[in-house]
Simulated scan of single mutants.
Amino acid sequence: MKAQSLGSIRKSFAPWADPTQQPYIEFDAVTKDFGNFTAVDDLTLSIYRREFFALLGASGCGKSTLLRMLAGFETPTKGRIVLDGEDLTGTPPYRRPVNMMFQSYALFPHMSVENNIAFGLKQEGMGKGERADRIAEVLKLVKLEPYAARKPHQLSGGQRQRVALARSLAKRPKVLLLDEPLGALDKKLREETQFELTDLQYELGMTFIVVTHDQEEAMTMADRIAIMEKGQIVQLAAPPEVYEAPASRFVADFVGSVNLFEGKVVRKDAARIVLEAPGGGEMVVDSTAPAEIGETAWYAVRPEKLRISAEPIEGANVLSGEVWEIAYFGDMTSFHIRLDNGQIVRVSMINRHRFSPLQLTWHDRAHVAFDADAGLLLNR
């Protein structure tokens, strides 16, 4: 039988699954307090060499504090941080083999692109010849060779972002830290830059750690994602697992859009569980989750896994209601269906044809359905 994998892509790079591999970066029981507020709470995490790692979470969850502790800008209240076998306790930022690229880019406005990149190298005392070679190398890497003499105000937002990236890479750090690196870019440029960063990281073979609150950004670029809440990691996994197999309702709701159908367990066998359906009836779902009869559980189904019809649908797992909202995005249409019990269900439909075959508008009666294996049963 052919092995199945979550999502559409199976990556061969997975050192965390190999017990012979040693972590490159280790956060060992790290806590960071700011007065009475705990930003990072007894967190343990391993990151591997050549990994593109994402810290994902809402504002205030502790992800930037974690990054700043690795960079040396903050000191852990408890615990230790190890990089390539070296305990970083007491090591000042300028002696750590890491470099951080900030959202603001922090370029010197009076300096040319070339001199912005050269600044850190001069501070280290690198010779003029070697410095010129290094600058030429990174300019070529980020495709900015024709812009070496320009000032930051003469560049586009995407070009300024590349200058900041080139400056961070020029010192050849062991780890590149990116704190919301694409937040200042427009949507289209941000999407293009995500792929460029991924390609660059692969080409360099360097370890990248990115902090972001943008789920699509993390899903596009990262080998693994750590989802943080209240200073702790609530799930650590590859992007397909985070999306298709969230560890909790919080993760399911935070990453993308999801429908959570709550109900008590009515019946179960080795492979299926039957729940009360919203508004009456039953939902039949494929699951081996440890749910007991009478226990409340939630079935999480992504909007794209649902089918919608103006006509009644035969079979199990069918819900009906009124079209409440419609949003047309060009490539897809999103329907919000208000069920008879008041719950709003989101359905996404890919627009495969120029003219929609589905004749539904506001306040029409609509029917939605999903397969027994379309989602995941959650009991927390």
Rank of each mutant, 00 (worst) to 15 (best):
V98Y: 13
R160G: 04
F119G: 02
E262A: 14
G315T: 08
L155A: 03
A277H: 07
V163P: 08
K188H: 08
P109Y: 07
T38I: 07
H336E: 10
T220L: 00
V82F: 06
K11R: 15
P76F: 03
D214V: 05
Q359V: 11
L200E: 09
I273R: 09
A222M: 01
K174R: 10
S356G: 06
K2C: 03
A252R: 04
T212R: 09
W362I: 14
L378C: 06
L43Y: 02
F37W: 04
T65L: 09
M332F: 14
L377D: 03
H353T: 12
V323E: 02
E124Y: 05
G315W: 13
Q22R: 15
D28R: 15
D28M: 11
L189C: 02
T361E: 12
R167N: 01
Y202Q: 14
L178F: 08
F53Q: 05
F27P: 06
V345A: 14
D286P: 00
V40D: 05
R160Q: 13
D199F: 02
T361N: 13
A271H: 12
E114F: 02
A29M: 10
G79P: 10
Q159E: 12
E322V: 14
V266F: 06
S320R: 13
R338D: 07
Y328A: 09
L185K: 01
G330W: 13
V30Y: 03
R249F: 00
A149V: 04
A245R: 14
T75M: 10
A297S: 04
Q343H: 13
T89Y: 08
Q154I: 03
V284Y: 08
L45D: 00
M206A: 06
A372I: 12
E26S: 15
S12H: 11
Q123T: 07
V285S: 08
K151E: 00
N99H: 11
A300M: 06
I313F: 01
L360V: 01
Q201N: 07
D223M: 06
R131F: 02
M101W: 08
I227E: 02
A17P: 00
K268I: 10
D84F: 04
D186W: 06
R352K: 10
V30S: 01
I135R: 06
D340S: 15
R80A: 10
L319D: 04
T220W: 02
L107F: 05
G256H: 02
K171A: 05
R80G: 02
D42C: 01
F102K: 02
F108L: 05
H367F: 15
F53T: 04
A148R: 15
S309W: 06
F261A: 09
A245Q: 14
A184K: 12
K151P: 01
Q343E: 11
D18V: 09
R352N: 08
A366S: 08
M101V: 15
L66T: 13
A270H: 07
L200C: 08
M206I: 15
M206V: 13
M332H: 15
R95W: 03
G375E: 09
M69W: 05
S257V: 08
M126K: 09
D179L: 11
P181L: 08
E216G: 11
P92K: 12
G294A: 09
G330Q: 13
G263T: 09
N36C: 00
F73H: 05
E292G: 11
T288A: 12
V251S: 00
K268A: 11
Q154D: 03
V368N: 04
I337W: 11
L107Y: 02
R249H: 02
